[in-house]
Amino acid sequence: MCVAVSGGGDSLALLLIAADWAQTRGRDVCALTVDHGLRPEAAGEARFVAEIAARYGIPHRTLRWEPPQPGQAKARRARHQLLAAAAREAGSVVILTAHTQDDNAETFLIRARAGSGWYGLAGIQPLSLSPAEPPGVPVLLGRPLLATPRAALRDLLRTQGEDWVEDPSNENPAYERVRVRRTLAEDPALRARILALQERLQLLRQLQDQALANWLTADVELRPDGALRAPLPLPPGERGERALAALIALASGRTRPVRSDALSRLSRRVTRPDTLRPATLGGAIVAVRKDRLHVTAEHGLAPEQVNAIPARLAAMVTACSGHM
């Protein structure tokens, strides 16, 4: 198992928790730190993490992005690619990240402002498929601290006599998350209401995701050439859109979500199979043949990408189920 550790308080606390877990169970843990090369302090922070990991007997790797490029979206994609590749090299299919209860509350307000529906407002998920692009064995992101407040993790570090790094960007109001964090700090009652609502939404999402996992397991046929077939009609409502999105992602080998408006339009067209002509979306071709939905890659996939689809399907089912 691998742990993503930046040097901040959340991820360092997760590293200590993982080290204790591994020691009591005789398991291996590897710490991974990404140096994007965008801040001069990053190299020193990676060395700081390496020193702490060494004290706890945990192997550590610093992953460098070469060449660094400006832009948060690019840096995020590069981070996931580097972490996934390192996890595979370490023989792990799970990377733990230190998202906390506070991150979930902040995410609620950010997504609400962006117009997210109830499914997104349910928050960060405890288990999800890494957005790293194939090829390679699918990697899952585990988030065991979603019920833990950020302050409790800082208290844990203090009791252990450990310090942590404070990223200056966490105080920069130019970032929306920083502004949202300040709003929640000033209004604890708002934070409590958000978390209570998220708990209810999370229960609903778990039911929806488990139903999708059951559908993917029972009804989807995977062909040797990488094509996928599914019976019609698709599951009702929003679940049908998510089912279609899952088939498109599997067939195309892409991890970026398709546009929700385009997905909704195509999902409505699929409900009228007699008039549906083959359509393309997200790098996949969607067609109806003999009352079954067929989804194939728009452009030919490399053999290793085709061979990885069964494992990717299994990982998607695991993520939807919410447990390993």
Rank of each mutant, 00 (worst) to 15 (best):
M1P: 11
S6V: 06
S6I: 04
G8K: 07
L15H: 09
L16P: 06
L16I: 09
I17S: 11
C30H: 14
A31P: 11
A31E: 12
E45W: 14
E45Y: 01
R47K: 02
F48P: 05
E66G: 00
E66N: 09
P67V: 14
Q69E: 12
A75N: 03
R76C: 02
L83H: 10
A87H: 06
A87P: 04
A90I: 01
V93A: 15
V93T: 14
V94N: 02
A98P: 12
D103H: 08
E106W: 00
F108C: 03
L109I: 09
R113V: 02
G123N: 06
P134R: 05
L141F: 13
L153G: 10
R158M: 08
W164T: 10
E166A: 11
P168A: 09
E176A: 14
R177N: 10
R179D: 01
R191P: 03
A192P: 03
R193Y: 06
L195T: 07
L197P: 01
Q198K: 05
Q202C: 01
Q208I: 00
D209G: 01
A213K: 05
N214E: 13
T217H: 14
D225G: 10
R229K: 12
R229T: 15
P235S: 08
R242N: 10
A243M: 15
L244M: 05
A246C: 14
L247F: 10
R254E: 09
T255N: 00
R256M: 02
R265I: 00
S267P: 00
V270I: 13
T275E: 13
L276H: 01
L281I: 13
L281P: 07
G282E: 04
G282P: 08
G283K: 09
V286S: 06
R292T: 14
R292E: 15
H299D: 07
A302E: 15
A302G: 06
E304I: 08
V306W: 05
A314Q: 14
M316G: 08
A319Y: 03
C320T: 00
G322F: 00
